[in-house]
Design a protein around this nucleic acid. Sequence first.
DNA 1: CAGCCTCCACACAGGTCGGTGTAGGTTTAA
DNA 2: TTAAACCTACACCGACCTGTGTGGAGGCTG
Lengths: 192, 192
Amino acid sequence: MRVTGKAPMVERILQTADRLFYQRGIRAVGVDLIAAEAGISKRSLYDYFPSKEALIEAYLERYTLPLPQTGASPAAQILGAFDRLERMFRQDGFRGCPLVNAVAELGGACEPVRSIATRFKQERRAWFRDRLVEAGLATPDALALQLLLLSEGAIASMLVSGDVSVARGARDAAVVLLRSAGLALEPAGTAA
Amino acid sequence: MRVTGKAPMVERILQTADRLFYQRGIRAVGVDLIAAEAGISKRSLYDYFPSKEALIEAYLERYTLPLPQTGASPAAQILGAFDRLERMFRQDGFRGCPLVNAVAELGGACEPVRSIATRFKQERRAWFRDRLVEAGLATPDALALQLLLLSEGAIASMLVSGDVSVARGARDAAVVLLRSAGLALEPAGTAA
DNA sequence: CAGCCTCCACACAGGTCGGTGTAGGTTTAA
DNA sequence: TTAAACCTACACCGACCTGTGTGGAGGCTG
């Protein structure tokens, strides 16, 4: 039961905080609960994280969606990102993007939160742009932003309505935008 | 100083709650602060709203974006909605959609919040659909959803990044989607 | 002026919050 | 066996939370 290494204990705390923060909201979860669910005392938790704010930042920093760079064609990778979005929506317990939620909840009160979230969204936008460059697009920035907006909109809409089909709607819109930019989508359109 | 009528006092409380809830987050604002900023005692506030939860619901229920039905063409009205989005973004103090933020913050803890937000988003989607029907589209549902996703994505992106230009990106994507659906956009493309 | 009625200032209850201090028990190593 | 290191359980602090109870000041009506 005893965990000797320091790193795995930190990881266990972060996993617990992740689950509770994401599911119930950051302000709604106290450190006592996190410590109890992680199976350690509150006193020990404060040996690993000096404050709740530090724990919040570590929780947000830890969040990184895997955006794999597979061998498929760039356009297929982009559409695959929307398919993965739909798969995320189908997992029960989906509650939107943790970073957006944190900014919405903490707002102007916590400036680091905003910068973490902004950096992450810029990485996602850069991923779209890189795929578009791969596909031969000379000016990919505008389209990359539009694809990001579609996925962000789908995440927000799924959060409030719980309707999984918004992912398909975003994907369909992405197809239109990609085609309109001159990209060839080799497989049969919107087939799964 | 004394406000005799009941309705204007309710309105004053709601305006104060609106400002504080929206700017700092719902959980971050106590009823003491709302009462103080509204210029009444906490005791009197509880004469108008039986609980903080009731005040929250009234605050969310009150939120209605005006989606005017002007004399312009349907397509122009739709693009005008994105222009109004950009104008909203430019107002200082913009902090995303209050309903989405509330769902993100309160989440599963408060079921009425979700239903209020869902209803509102459905109304917005219906507004897009009605405009598309006006424009002669036979199957407007998919495109209406996609337009909603674009605006929701712009709102979320603006919330985290503070970059006003996402509104223009959403508008540009809307133009592409509308054209792809066969709608004629009489004025000169993306000009202001 | 008397009576009434509204509202505020204030205090309070019961609870939770983030964060700390400490005593004692358990594991490890010499 | 003994000493050191670690960790838990628990009490505690001040602050804040929602919600209520009350005394009295102030204005309105007779």
